[in-house]
Amino acid sequence: MSPTWTRFNIVSVTLGFAFLYLPIVLLVIFSFNASKLVTVWGGFSTRWYVSLFQNQGLMDAAWVTIRVGLISATVATVLGTLGALALVRYTRFRGRVLFSGMIFAPLVMPDVITGLSLLLLFVAIDLDRGFATVTLAHITFTMCFVAVVVQSRLLTFDRSLEEAAMDLGAPPVRTFFQITLPVIAPAIISGWMLAFTLSLDDLVVASFTSGPGATTLPMKIYSQVRLGVTPEINAACTILIGLVTAGVIIASIVNKRREVQRLRDEQAAQRG
């Protein structure tokens, strides 16, 4: 590929990135605005970050979100992994096609419908809405994402590894925990992180299924924004962006290093 920058290239790249990042950049800039007016620049200040941490409502919501995320991602990972195993391994059970269709349906289901149907269910079984119902709802809709990630790993899993373990005397359960699980662990971890992220930024499902005392951060932010955007919200969002960016960067550096190390090992092996 030739590295020449035509004017057309420059313009399209600039426009593209501007389209993607301008709103975020604005948000970050205005989180450091000294003025209380969101759209008027009044000098640099970090006062909104200070007041953010003093805003009990926002802090409570953040704490609820993190707890919901941790619990639902963990449970969804266990259930999603089991579902993926069943779908990949037991290919001959009755109704497999139906079951596999059903586990993936929530992927394309509009959040509104997922939220509404869960709400109806909770009302029907007379479950008080609150922390438990949000967590349950998040488990439901993140589980299928985990199942998809784990399933794609299992499809390329060499079954002879398990056969070898059994051949060497390991019963099925021990084989699963000592061989299968460690080998597919990276996929399970990425499934968990995906579920956690989805739970963190879910607004719609949470709005339907949450109740008093279980307001998540996205719900809190949304309700405050309706009363007018405050610089505090900008600060909260900037922190979230910072966390996500750091996470992505760390993950890719770790991945890259592992890849480089693996290549180096393999080259060493070819020589040795």
């Binding site: 060499d158 002879s160 590894l161 056969e163 070898a164 373990a165 059994m166 051949d167 060497l168 005397g169 390991a170 019963p171 061989i179 460690p182 080998v183």
Partner: peptide, 20 residues
């Protein structure tokens, strides 16, 4: 008799070495 109780061992075509 399941594979894990048979006094035979197998060397696999793919070698099936445990990667971890």
């Amino acid at each position: 008799i399941p594979p894990y109780r048979r006094p035979v061992n197998m060397m696999f075509q793919s070698y099936a070495l445990f990667p971890h």
